[in-house]
């Protein structure tokens, strides 16, 4: 499903003439199987978000290969990656990243609009997913009228709406209280089980990391598998 081989990347900081190169990803290799949940834990600045951005295609690594669904993604153009992303990858963000001017329903249907799906079909698909994530009572609310948990459910529903085989989650419970965190983790586990979706979760929360089948530790740009979980 996902093959990452020898991926390295450096950031350049400082003014021209006195630039400094900081390696953020150092020769990273790992594989993720279909339907697997993996978590990547690490301190701030360890490079875990950079790795996620490289998998998402927001950043082109200087070296290495990232093969997703059998396709080498590091050579894709921005337009090609946009299409690839809309068909294969969903995102769950720490701060939800919802459009403030759109209702929950409209936020969820946005990826379908981008794909050019007609209104009637969108209506059917969105209603189905709204029931699945439990947003039946608040689908017409704007983001500022929703609780943190509800906003994250909208974000998850938006990630699921195009039925992608992979979901990338960056600190999915980072802005939630512990009770809501549990609800979201249960939802992720349920979706993984019922829809066979592959999850890559970035977190520094051990409890979140523990729902994964495999756990990785990121330290100074180096990735190591630390624990094998049986779920």
């Amino acid at each position: 499903m996902i093959h990452i081989q020898n991926v390295s990347h450096t950031f350049t900081i400082g003014k021209k003439g006195s630039e400094k190169k900081i390696p953020v990803l150092k020769n990273i290799s790992f594989e993720v199987a279909k339907g697997e949940i993996i978590s990547i834990v690490g301190k701030s600045g360890s490079g875990k978000s950079t790795l996620l951005n490289a998998v998402a295609g927001f950043l082109k690594p200087e070296e290495g290969s990232i093969i997703i669904q059998g396709k080498e993604t590091t050579t894709l153009t921005e337009s090609e990656y946009a299409i690839f992303r809309s068909e294969n990858i969903g995102f769950i963000f720490q701060n939800f990243q919802l459009m403030p001017g759109l209702t929950a329903f409209e936020n969820i249907e946005l990826p379908l609009k981008i794909q050019g799906i007609d209104k009637h079909r969108r209506f059917e698909i969105v209603n189905k997913i709204i029931r699945k994530v439990g947003l039946e009572t608040v689908f017409d609310h704007y983001p500022n009228e929703l609780s943190g948990g509800q906003q994250q459910r909208v974000c998850i529903a938006r990630a699921l709406i195009t039925n992608p085989p992979i979901i990338l989650a960056d600190e999915p419970t980072g802005n939630l209280d512990s009770e809501t965190e549990q609800e979201i983790l249960q939802l992720i586990a349920l979706l993984n089980e019922s829809m066979d979706i592959t999850f890559i979760i970035i977190t520094h929360d051990e409890e979140v990391a523990n729902i994964a089948h495999r756990k990785f530790l990121m330290h100074d740009g180096v990735l190591k598998e630390v624990v094998q979980h049986a779920v």
Partner: peptide, 16 residues
């Protein structure tokens, strides 16, 4: 800017 970023993240290409 943030909205454009989200749009791109969820599949909108530069042409769109």
């Amino acid at each position: 800017t943030r909205e454009i970023g989200v749009m791109k993240a969820i599949g909108a290409g530069p042409k769109l």
